[in-house]
């Protein structure tokens, strides 16, 4: 245990529902520096409930940085000030006594607020449904190593597949663009032999869906990469650009 509690004052976004107007509410708490950020919010909620007040709505599931459910904008940064971690991996020891902490939901037209800090990220699911799959043959179980894949390529694909779909890239981007997420999903298939049959159709459908859902256009500020908890690289965006341009220019479809 690393000693004394710290006192922080929080400004947290409260909004009753999707259509209502939200505003910041102030809370003060004395908390152990060993507590995680979400435990700190749990404490506030316990306190609110004990006073018969409505707790703050926020999302979390695994609390170990693998599910992508959590996601808060803390002092203007998605997942807080520490790079390459999710909100659930952030600890109060990263804040100093007396620090003001602003907590806001991810803000984007394509991520409408459901309540307080909870936003609707089902747009990501819709994008995945348009192309996040591969064709496989039915029949006997194929040998795991039947298709040779070089270590380099396998690693790149794995790096792309590390995306947990949290949406911090959208939250960080000044244009609320989903390019980093979509490019990670496009890349994880495009890099591997198994992803080739749908390669060009996939990138076209996923980009079309992304645009349709009202995410902004990428202007290469690379804020997404800086805030991504999984360190997804913007080279995935370059790969997606390349694939999309190639697919659009060379495909036989004139529609």
């Amino acid at each position: 245990m690393s000693g004394k509690n710290i006192n922080v004052s929080l400004k947290i976004w409260r909004q009753d529902g999707p259509k209502t107007v939200g505003s910041f509410a102030e809370y003060k708490i004395s908390i152990s520096p060993d507590a995680s950020f979400l435990e700190m919010l749990d404490e506030i909620n316990n306190d609110l409930e004990s006073k018969n007040q409505i707790p703050i709505a926020f999302e979390s599931d695994c609390r170990e940085g693998i599910c992508g459910t959590c996601g808060l904008v803390i002092n203007g940064q998605p997942h807080g000030p520490i790079p390459k971690i999710a909100t659930c991996q952030l600890h109060m020891r990263n804040f100093k006594d007396g620090d003001p902490i602003w907590i806001e939901p991810f803000r984007a037209k394509a991520f409408p607020i459901i309540k307080d800090l909870v936003v609707d990220r089902s747009g990501f699911d819709e994008i995945l449904q348009t192309g996040g799959y591969i064709s496989i043959n039915t029949g006997g179980v194929p040998d795991a190593n039947a298709i040779p894949i070089s270590k380099d390529i396998a690693s790149l694909a794995m790096d792309a597949a590390a995306c947990i779909g949290c949406g911090a890239c959208v939250a960080a981007c000044k244009n609320a663009s989903a390019m980093l997420f979509v490019s990670a999903k496009v890349s994880q298939y495009a890099l591997l032999p198994q992803g080739q049959p749908e390669r060009s159709q996939r990138v076209q459908s996923m980009v079309a869906k992304m645009d349709e859902l009202g995410f902004g256009s990428c202007t290469n500020t690379y804020a997404c990469e800086a805030e991504c908890p999984k360190g997804i690289s913007v080279t995935n965006i370059a790969r997606m650009n390349r694939d999309y341009i190639k697919a659009s220019v060379t495909s036989n479809s004139v529609e």
Binding site: A108, K109, G216, A223, A226, E227
Partner: peptide, 29 residues
């Protein structure tokens, strides 16, 4: 692009953390 990208985030953040994740000239094209 500028107009559409503004529309993609109708409600702004109260605290703008962009200086911590991107360069000023990339944001002010």
């Amino acid at each position: 692009l500028w107009i559409e990208n503004k529309k993609a985030r109708p409600v702004k953040y109260a605290v703008n953390g962009s200086s911590k994740n991107s360069t000023i000239y990339s944001r002010t094209m």
